[in-house]
Amino acid sequence: MRLLRILGRVLALSVQRELAHRVNLTISVTMMVIDLAASVATLGLVFTQTATLAGWRPAEALALLGAFQLVTGLLNTFIEPNLAWFAEKVTGGRLDDTLLQPVPSFFMLSLGACQPLALPRVLLGGALLVWATVAGEGVTALGVAGCVALLAAGVVITWAVRVLLATLAFWAPGFEPSVLFSAFWQLGRYPVGVYHPVVRQLLTYVVPVAFVATFPAEALMRGGGGLGLGLGALGAGAALLALGAAGLAWRAGVRRYTGATS
């Protein structure tokens, strides 16, 4: 509880700080809307040439894009500000302060700072999801529940995988996975079915963007039967597994860390 209060306070402070620069905020939101419009337009172009993309109909692909944008917004708001360029923090000895604080370092270092400028993307993604739900046929309550559960699982998996990648810095300080991660992340905006089977496996098990967009959208639009439930259970299991692995790796990594300050 105390941890949640601290993180809430951090968010409130960051929001206040950003609201002070209104022009900046307006430009950021405008850019985000343009970016999203470009993504929707691209999907529109694809569907002028075909009725289905790897078996996905327009409304379903729209739901997928919405889920992708929503989780990308959460990733950029709460996770990336902490873990991007993490290797520099390790080699620069900048973890000392946080490690000495009386809160679990795992949470403080992976969620302790945030970038609320990225939050509007969550709303825009959510709006796309609602649009897709209205446009799609046969969306059921069960499907919606499965989608929400899978989105939650997707966020947890994203967080855990990002932590796992960042902890590599404790062993290989020269390796910086941030930009490679973001390059792979971009692949999530289309159904994983369009990629080569090898890439599809990578996207499901290594950089799990399949859990972020493809599976939640599948549960939402086609989750009428048992599919939503099945996918939900799979997502929850994968989330727990990934989080456990991240926690263990973090503990081992921090033990290797030696401060650089006096």
Partner: peptide, 26 residues
């Protein structure tokens, strides 16, 4: 050069996504 590698990865990703998507469509 390791930073350059990450730049290249980001440059390459959109044409490759385009390749995958449009090869599926047509």
């Amino acid at each position: 050069r390791s930073f350059a590698l990450t730049l290249v990865a980001n440059q390459a990703v959109t044409p490759l996504v385009g390749l995958a998507v449009w090869s599926t469509v047509l």
